[in-house]
Structure formats: structure tokens, C-alpha cells
Design a protein around this nucleic acid. Structure first.
Length: 417
RNA sequence: GGGGGAGUGUCCCGAGCGGCAAAGGGGGCGGACUGUAAAUCCGCUGGCUUACGCCUUCGUAGGUUCGAGUCCUACCUCCCCCA
């Protein structure tokens, strides 16, 4: 069904990664005849990447699998500015120390998805702080700024929407697109990078880079954007009670990560398998054909495969096993999140309210009270009906833990130490 | 510089005659139904409290009042118009 001749575009298109491509024929031809270096920018405004970053990371993965060179760019410099795209409010400005700390913890994630190092397709990581931080303002204006038309910049969605909605857009943020365009050129100079990929909201920024490349180097750059991924019911992906779905294990356990995928809506299963796992397409076809309750099998495969991409095969299988014992056999899974409690404290008895707050299942005593009123609280699978109930040593099971449950899905173990 | 408008529950949007823990959505969480799905229906969605109740919250700081999100003053931030 795909009209592309190159492996690279074929794979991306058939798995649903492509929203827009500039000059598709030329890019297709280039991908067939040479090794492309392509970059995607990631900002460092949070200490971990989350699910929203997964799509671009997968694009880099496939880029490498099809023989090309991925170039993840850390926005060490641009994070100091903040991209106004899709935002009504200015982002908080981060300190350089924050940015560097974030950058460091993000870096490890990439190694899971692509091979770094030598060889023609070995991935390279760059940081735009390396060139942006030392720019000379006047030189930059003369060399780069003169190629930008304010008239045109005002017509870009990222700017236009802010202005139309009467939201403040600072000069600092207004410059973001210029810096991103400059990044593209700089990566071309340093690494011969000719393709920039990103989310669909990046189209305007990328196109600016293409223009600048043509003006400064008479070079043909390319843009490729991925669709914005929403769930079948229209919600933005990756929002849960506790916030974002993080990729770092210390922000979100592999078990919880597995659960996130396990709870995918039926209608999203096939699409997510294509986007977020590396299963063969014919295998995905087979799974997608499952009907009714059988599709749960596909969801488990999705969960395990997607978790394995980020946390490794063994952690993924452990999460799957824990889910199986917990949900299908009514037992205790070993990788359920656990919270340690001093044995003496448990001996004295902890009120249910405090116990659930301590376990992180609720934010306040009141929240636990309401949950009890809603029949949602269980200790060792026994429903709690009074907020005066005590969790003590008697509740420690043969496994040496106390199982606290909020609803049927959220479980935390209390482990005496 | 002059004139007009706006800022509401720490997720968002948004109503709010001086009696307000503050309408209504969305989102989220829980329950029922299911398949750890969707849809639907129901409940919850500031903190402490067994409870009466107490405390904290409507841009900031004061004031009027028995009582202020609501009225007054000053200040901060944003928007629009005029210069």
C-alpha cells in the first residue's frame, strides 16, 4: 500500500509514523542511494522522557534499522528558551544546573533504542548548547537573522495562535524557531544531517530550518513529521492519575509501565503495536484480528513488548508474571510496588488511613475515607468498611507482606523491615 | 501618558444579587456492568476530624462590614482602544 521504494520510508509509512513529508520523492530516492543522517530534538525540561517522546524515539530506531544514522539532539541550549508551540503560557525557565541534570538522566534511555558508536549507521548524540550558548548576538543577527521575515514568522501557528488568543509571547520564545532552524544548519555542517523529524506540531519549525539551509548552503533539507497520537476515545496519550507515564524506572516502575499498556483500549491495540513495538506486521495483523475478550492476549503482548523496549526483556516478563498472578490467580506478584515499613511501627498498628497514604495510594486521609465509603479499599483482598481499621502484624501474610488495594487495579505491598 | 477590560478551587475551562468550601463542564479516581477494554449508569474530586465542628482557599496587600470571591483603596500581571 505504500508507494515508497526505500526501506526507511516504507517501514515508517506502513507502521503509521508519517504525517507529513516534504519532497517525498526526493527523500525516498536519497534514502535508497545513500546513508541519511536524521535528527530529532528533545528538550530537557524534565528529568525523564515520557510516553510522548516514544514516537520520535521509535522513528530513530527504525531509521537505524533501515541503514541510516540517527542523531538525537539534546536541547541543552533551546531548553533555556522554551518552545511556544502548542502552549498558551510561557514555560518556566530552567536553570543550567537543572538542564544538565535532566540531560544526563535522559541520555541513558536512548541507548535502549539505538546503537551508538562507529559504523556508518552508528547513532550520534549532540547537544545544541555546544553551539547556541556561545553565539555572538550581532554576528548571529547578520548571518542568520537577516534570512528570517517577521511577516512570515507571524503567520506560523505557534505564533499566530498565541497572538490570536491574546496570550503573551515573549521575544525570547519568538526566537525559538530561529534557533531550531539554526540547529538544523549546524547539524548539517557538523554531521551532514539533511533530515529533521518530529511531531506534527514541529512542522513549522522544521520548514524554517529547510529554508535556512537553502539560503545559507543551497542545500536540500527534508522534513518528516509524525501524527499526534491520541487514544481512540480522543484523549491525549499518557495521562494517568499520577501524571505522565515516564520511561525511567525510578520515576515509574516497569510493573506500572506494563499496566499502562495493558489497559490500552481495544481500538488502539493494532495501532500501538505498530508504533511502539517491533513485532512483524503480519504478526500484528494476526493479533489485531482477535475479537472480544481474546484481544486481551494482544494487549498482554503489547504490554510486554513495549515494556521490553524500555526496561529490557526480563523486567517486562517479570511485570507480566506479576500481573498474571495478581489478576488471574489472585495471588501476590513479586514486582508489585512495595513500600517498606519499620516492623516496630507495624507491631504498634497503623491506621488504614495512614497506611494507604504511606503506600502512596492516596494523598490524604480524607481521600482514603472517601475511598472506603466507595467500597474501594481492601487489605489482603478483604474489603475495609471502617476508617478506624488497623493494619498490624496480624495482617502480615505468609509471604511476609500486607497487600493494600485501591480498587481492583491498584495494589501496593507493605513490607516490614 | 489617557480610557476600558481581565486574573476564581495548585489539572484545565468556567459561573458566581455581601451569608460560599463557592454552580456547571472537561479530565481524573472509585463503584455497577464487562474482558484489567470501550460505551452507559452511579458516587467522589481543599485539609484535619468518629462526630458537632475547626482550619486554609477566588492575583497581592490593606480597608468597610456581624459577615467579603462579591464593595472600597493601593499595588502586581495580562489584554484592548486612544496618544
Amino acid at each position: 500500500m505504500s508507494a515508497y521504494k526505500s526501506d526507511f520510508l516504507n517501514v515508517l509509512a506502513s507502521r503509521g509514523f508519517i504525517h507529513q513529508v516534504s519532497e517525498p520523492e526526493a527523500l525516498d530516492a536519497l534514502a535508497r542511494t545513500s546513508t541519511i543522517t536524521a535528527y530529532i530534538g528533545f528538550d530537557c525540561t524534565a528529568p525523564s522522557l515520557h510516553i510522548g517522546h516514544l514516537l520520535p524515539i521509535m522513528m530513530l530506531h527504525w531509521l537505524q534499522q533501515t541503514g541510516h544514522r540517527p542523531l538525537p539532539l539534546m536541547g541543552g541550549g533551546t531548553s533555556r528558551v522554551g518552545d511556544p508551540s502548542g502552549k498558551d503560557e510561557s514555560r518556566r525557565l530552567l536553570t543550567d544546573a537543572d538542564i544538565n541534570a535532566n540531560l544526563k538522566s535522559i541520555r541513558a534511555i536512548f541507548a535502549r533504542f539505538m546503537r551508538f558508536g562507529d559504523g556508518k549507521a552508528g547513532a550520534v548524540m549532540a547537544n545544541n548548547a555546544d553551539w547556541l550558548n556561545t553565539l555572538n548576538y550581532v554576528d548571529f543577527l547578520r548571518d542568520v537573522g537577516r534570512h528570517f521575515s517577521i511577516n512570515r514568522m507571524l503567520s506560523f501557528d505557534s505564533v499566530k495562535l498565541r497572538l490570536e488568543r491574546q496570550q503573551e509571547l515573549s521575544f525570547l520564545e519568538f526566537n525559538y524557531m530561529i534557533l531550531q532552524a539554526y540547529d538544523f544548519v549546524e547539524l548539517y555542517r557538523r554531521y551532514g544531517c539533511m533530515l529533521q523529524m518530529g511531531g506534527s506540531d514541529q512542522w513549522g519549525n522544521i520548514v524554517n530550518g529547510i529554508d535556512l539551509g537553502r539560503r545559507l548552503h543551497n542545500a536540500q533539507f527534508f522534513a518528516l513529521t509524525a501524527p499526534l497520537i491520541t487514544t481512540a476515545s480522543g484523549a491525549k496519550m499518557g495521562k494517568t492519575a499520577s501524571g505522565a507515564v515516564w520511561l525511567n524506572a525510578d520515576q515509574m516502575s516497569p510493573y506500572d509501565y506494563w499496566q499502562f499498556w495493558r489497559n490500552t483500549e481495544d481500538a488502539d491495540v493494532a495501532r500501538f503495536l505498530k508504533l511502539f513495538t517491533v513485532l512483524q506486521l503480519d504478526e500484528i495483523e494476526r493479533l489485531a484480528a482477535l475479537k472480544g475478550a481474546e484481544i486481551n492476549e494482544a494487549k498482554k503482548i503489547l504490554a510486554t513488548a513495549a515494556t521490553a523496549m524500555v526496561h529490557g526483556q526480563s523486567a517486562a516478563e517479570q511485570a507480566a508474571a506479576t500481573a498474571r498472578t495478581t489478576f488471574e490467580e489472585g495471588g501476590l506478584g513479586t514486582s508489585l510496588p512495595a513500600v517498606e515499613v519499620p516492623r516496630a511501627e507495624l507491631k504498634a498498628g497503623i491506621g488504614v488511613l495512614a497506611a494507604f497514604v504511606k503506600a502512596g495510594l492516596a494523598a490524604s486521609n480524607g481521600e482514603v475515607r472517601r475511598a472506603i465509603a466507595n467500597n474501594a479499599i481492601m487489605v489482603n483482598d478483604v474489603r475495609v468498611t471502617s476508617d478506624k481499621a488497623i493494619v498490624g502484624e496480624a495482617e502480615v501474610t505468609a509471604d511476609g507482606v500486607v497487600k493494600l488495594s485501591l480498587g481492583r487495579k491498584r495494589h501496593v505491598l507493605l513490607k516490614p523491615v
